[in-house]
């Protein structure tokens, strides 16, 4: 890749998602709550995916979730991720209901398990972008 600068794909907000990425910059993972049918959704769009109402309210997530599935990535998906491997990608079930893709903070892969509790940790990538990542809620696991 001689001299080619490989940058990670970073999100570009659009009309649907501007509030979401702004929320992360100010430390909140915002979910859309439908005022008409009660559906809670991730990711952001103008209408409710369950009832198509546009009466949606943004509320910050508690930051608690569990692992629905995961995979530890050893072969990087392109040169931009080469320095990161191995890393774990997660399917997280949020306490409020929605499921999302995220990645694990740290490399404690042995502690990963289905249904293991997680805590949101927002990682600032640059001035524009902060990503909603998760870490294992080890203490909670031991105390509960």
């Amino acid at each position: 890749m001689n001299g080619l600068v490989i940058e990670k794909p970073l999100p570009t907000a659009d009309g649907d998602s501007q509030a979401f990425w702004e929320g992360l910059r100010s430390g909140r993972l915002l979910l859309q709550h439908c005022a008409d049918c009660g559906h809670v959704q991730y990711y952001q769009q103008r209408i409710c995916r369950q009832c198509q109402s546009d009466n949606l309210q943004l509320k910050p997530a508690s930051g608690k979730g569990t692992i629905h599935s995961y995979s530890v990535v050893y072969r990087a998906p392109g040169p931009a991720f080469k320095d990161d491997v191995p890393y774990a990608v997660l399917l997280v079930d949020l306490e409020e209901g929605p499921r999302m893709v995220s990645s694990l903070v740290g490399k404690d892969f042995d502690a990963l398990d289905f249904d293991a509790p997680l805590t949101l940790k927002i990682i600032q990538i640059n001035d524009e972008v902060s990503l909603p990542c998760f870490e294992l809620a080890i203490n909670e696991l031991h105390s509960s």
């Binding site: 570009t12 599935s69 893709v101 990503l131």
Partner: peptide, 25 residues
């Protein structure tokens, strides 16, 4: 998706991997 998937380093192979992993469980 460039907003809600790819920034976490999840290309298509990992989506299939996570379904298989859940199948094992």
């Amino acid at each position: 998706d460039q907003q809600y998937e790819m920034p976490f380093g999840i290309p298509v192979a990992n989506t299939f991997a996570m379904t298989a992993h859940r199948h094992m469980k």
